[in-house]
């Protein structure tokens, strides 16, 4: 499906939903058999959040990011984080303009709607925190001058869980800035066979036209934000959060900001499912992705398992 000629601001919510569901279908064709993950990633974007992709090399982290960027019709830049990367390398810097005799701000790669921060844990903490600050404030301050970032602004960071040497793991306070943490995992064997024998997904991606544009995405994000949430659902969220706070292994439990993130992600998920408001099904769908990295002191994998068990025993009706 291609972008429709009507201006995004005048489209109805139903149209927007149809549009983004079409985008999901397209992404499904490229990113084989990982519809759940793609849905969550798109939900994260619709909730105006940033994503942290964590999985082993070759599982398609970069492909996922580029697919999303391409189909959303957003400008896409990729920064490979290394141990010698400096903040200025991402943000941009004041450069002396010999012609005019003045300093001129040269924007870094961060000035893009869609930024892929590859292997973010390889950069030194200084660079990491600079990026994370930008992610939160959506503006860059260099030498006292503030430069606003374009809207929408999505950062997709990747991490390689296997690598331990020469990495700087992100502290919990920084992890909090990512709305969702996603693991890609492996596709179905059948779909994987298609992948092995079929067309290179990158080429297929290049052939596919974008489904939306930045304006449409902003409108959809506004529609998601405007979604009302029922008391019944908030009760369910409260029950979940209370249980994370009461479980000793998950102490100190989810923060109020995490709760807000959970509801925001659930909203976006509901939007993608064509619902008028989030249901417990949406909360359940996004819960582990929202909560695991915020609680994962003892190791994200075991935390995710524990959160899944918690979902199963918390009354969802």
């Amino acid at each position: 499906m291609s972008a429709e000629p009507t201006p995004a601001s005048r489209r109805s919510t139903a149209d927007l939903v149809r549009l983004f569901r079409g985008l999901l279908d397209e992404a499904d064709g490229i990113f084989y058999g990982q519809r759940t993950v793609v849905t969550l990633a798109l939900a994260g974007v619709l909730a105006d959040g940033h994503l942290l992709l964590e999985d082993h090399p070759g599982t398609g982290k970069t492909l996922l990011a580029s697919t999303l960027a391409h189909l959303l019709g957003l400008g896409f830049r990729r920064v490979q984080f290394t141990s010698d990367l400096l903040p200025a390398d991402i943000m941009g810097s004041q450069v002396y303009d010999s012609a005019g005799g003045t300093f001129r701000f040269v924007p870094g790669p961060v000035f893009t709607p869609f930024l892929l921060a590859d292997e973010i844990n390889r950069a030194p903490p200084r660079t990491q925190s600079a990026l994370l600050e930008v992610m939160d404030e959506r503006q860059v301050s260099v030498d006292g001058v503030t430069h606003p970032l374009p809207r929408p602004f999505v950062v997709v960071a990747t991490q390689n869980p296997g690598d331990q040497t020469g990495t700087y793991p992100l502290p919990e306070s920084q992890l909090d800035r990512f709305l969702l943490r996603l693991e890609l995992g492996y596709p179905d064997v059948e779909r994987e066979k298609d992948l092995w024998g079929g067309e290179d997904p990158r080429e297929r991606l290049l052939r596919t036209p974008p489904c939306t544009d930045a304006e449409t995405l902003t409108a959809a994000q506004a529609a998601v934000r405007a979604m009302t949430v029922s008391d019944a659902l908030l009760d369910y969220v409260a029950r979940l959060i209370a249980r994370t706070r009461n479980a000793p292994s998950l102490a100190p439990g989810l923060s109020p900001r995490a709760g807000r993130a959970l509801v925001a992600a659930a909203r976006a998920h509901a939007f993608l499912n064509g619902r008028g408001a989030p249901w417990p099904d949406d909360v359940k769908a996004v819960f582990v992705a929202v909560a695991a990295h915020r609680l994962g002191r003892a190791g994200v994998a075991s935390t995710a398992a524990e959160l899944t068990a918690l979902l199963e025993t918390t009354t969802a009706r």
Binding site: P280, L311, E312, A316
Partner: peptide, 10 residues
């Protein structure tokens, strides 16, 4: 029977 954590849809 329906589990506590199971939603109606599930």
């Amino acid at each position: 029977a329906i589990a506590p954590g199971e939603t109606a849809l599930e």
